[in-house]
Nucleic acid binder design. Structure first.
Lengths: 212, 212, 212, 212
DNA sequence: AATGAATGAGACTTCATTCAT
DNA sequence: AATGAATGAAGTCTCATTCAT
């Protein structure tokens, strides 16, 4: 009696098809140019059927966002499970985050740049106290805390540092995405290495020096 | 025979009016919501007349972009004219760049995020050799070069550094714009200070240390 | 072999369910906003199944109408069975008719205002000869006839009178329904009393006076 | 230089054309079935142009309503300017009101039956105190007041009477409209005469008798 | 120089209905 | 008996653009 399950599966498959098509369009034309019609045309169905699988356009966009955010979080937390010293952990995490993001450039852009309240409340990370409320930032914060576990550096300063690292990393990723076609793979890797070795590491050291 | 010039002038004035109105709308509703109709309504002319002054909507958007880019460049080069030592100059320049950008958040976003070939070719800065071709990056590069004038650091490394600084700064600005409503003025200043003092300075020092 | 009957019964039950749900929607959103989908959603079945029980939407609407008309007739004839004098009977009947109608305002409106031939042929009452053909009007006519059994008033005049009473009563009911929220219960009762005591009674008396 | 005026006129003419077409559709399909598309199809223009002349569909409906209401008020007040005695004035007014309404049956129905708050607040007449707030009812009230100027009938009773007359008249008009095709012109006139002579007059007399 | 009129395309969404399963 | 999938038509509205005047 797998008939029910088959139907379920087919339904999910079609939903996936719709979402993937929407993602495709987003990639090509930007999120604001996703339209029910375009999706319908591509999958060669009538526009109406889409409302059979999703309540409205917002729901589709919503799914697209959730997807992007989830992928990033997954990638990030996988980097946490190493047993390296905290400095090394920080480096690996940063690298992982950059890599994951670059593998889904369009979703990343869409999610991170969206400024509708509902979304920005999830992606925001620069406000005071964000280190406690934002999962991704919290990870970063704890890593830094561990690095300075002996020194007496104020938590607020560590939060600032985490935020600056996050924002800088975001900037590098975004520019790499935007300039996609213009930067060679080799140079891109050099940039990432250099960013981690001088910017991130530089911050950590500078902070350490200022401690005394 | 000043009649011709007067006409010319009036023409330019009206073009300005149209562009300013478009900029206004961009600020309020985002670049994707600029419409010929909205512009026409605001200046209380008919939509058709706009085609008298601009070929089509794309031309208007193009002008808007060029404008934004120019403002940034102007602000930046003004920071160059100080006689401080290069380290201080770098700090001032970075700060100035951040400040200018934050004063025109929407134009900045629009210009920097646009990925149509025509525009990205102007804003791109991460490709190998950008330090020579991009005015803004060139300034940064020269400043760094001056800092390490005694050491024997390879130009390619300095370019990498300039690019990483540029990308990081871009990231901080972007996130500050996106999270506008959520970050207090005080915290925002702390972030900028911390960014300059630890991230930028940190890079410079780390690079110096690695020299030997 | 009660199996066939059970199926029959179940079928009728489901038809009832569908009709009741349709009536519900009519009450809430008006007759024009009844949609197959809405019915299906409420009874938690798929839209398609409804076509199993009714040919199409028109058939459902048709049933709804018939129902309304029946309710009114039932209520009316119950008022007939008193043994009062005819004047009193007329008053009671009128009052009963008003009350019953106000208890099912939406059905009443829908039925009475519908002007598709099929329906209007049932509700029409103003044409010459209606007193004989229309059950409801016939009752009224007979009541009036009884009142003037001694005088020599022409049947056509009595019919006119019955028709005017019917139309006036209809007007009062309709306005009370339309202005529902604006008329207090007390004032509504006053209006009904006043209508019966002055308008209906007034007609009857005026007609009696003109007899001689 | 009547060029401006000509354009103005043409504009108004086209607006009229649209409104008339809308009215036509209302007549045929009911107010709820007016659609921009239908209007456009009939006048053989594209749907978009309609938005050139009216802000949106609501504006069109609004105009339709205002039109209907105005016609009625005009017709009514013209009946007031006679120098007859009040009883005769009442008869003439009633007759005039019926006649005017029957000349624009569809607008009348549409306006009177519409129960959206904005409209019903204009057409409502049965609530306590309506005689003061509703122009049409006020006229009726004053006429009755004049008839009983010698007797000591309470204003609230006169208001009730006015309301009952208004509602009854409304009922007669509505049924005549609905049963349009079924009632001969002769019979229709008989009904109107009979209504005025027995129902309206009957009320007036009955009220007068009850005074003592 | 300026405008009003007009259009065709496209946006989102709801609906009644059919059909294979 | 019941359903999910699918469609085509229709609904309102906005837009960029063209053209005659």
């Amino acid at each position: 009696m797998g008939i029910k399950e088959r139907k379920e599966r087919e339904r999910r498959e079609k939903q996936e098809l719709i979402l993937n098509t929407a993602a495709e369009i987003m990639k090509e034309d930007g999120i604001d140019n996703i339209s029910i019609r375009k999706i319908a045309n591509r999958i060669e169905y009538s526009p109406a059927i889409i409302y059979h699988y999703f309540k409205d356009k917002d729901e589709i966009i919503g799914h697209l966002m959730k997807r992007g955010y989830q992928k990033i979080l997954d990638g990030l937390s996988s980097a946490l499970e190493t047993r390296d010293n905290p400095e090394e952990k920080l480096r690996k995490m940063t690298r992982k985050y950059i890599e994951v993001s670059l593998q889904m450039p369009d979703e990343y852009m869409t999610v991170q740049l969206n400024s509708t309240p509902g979304v920005v409340s999830q992606t925001a990370s620069l406000f005071k106290g964000a280190a406690e409320k934002k999962p991704a930032l919290k990870i970063l914060f704890q890593c830094l805390r561990e690095i300075y576990r002996d020194g007496n550096i104020d938590d607020s300063v560590i939060e600032l540092t985490a935020q600056v690292i996050a924002a800088s990393t975001f900037g590098l990723i975004m520019r790499l995405i935007i300039e996609q076609g213009l930067v060679s793979a080799e140079h891109r890797n050099n940039l990432i290495d250099h960013f981690i070795n001088t910017a991130v590491d530089g911050m950590v050291q500078t902070l350490g020096n200022n401690r005394e």
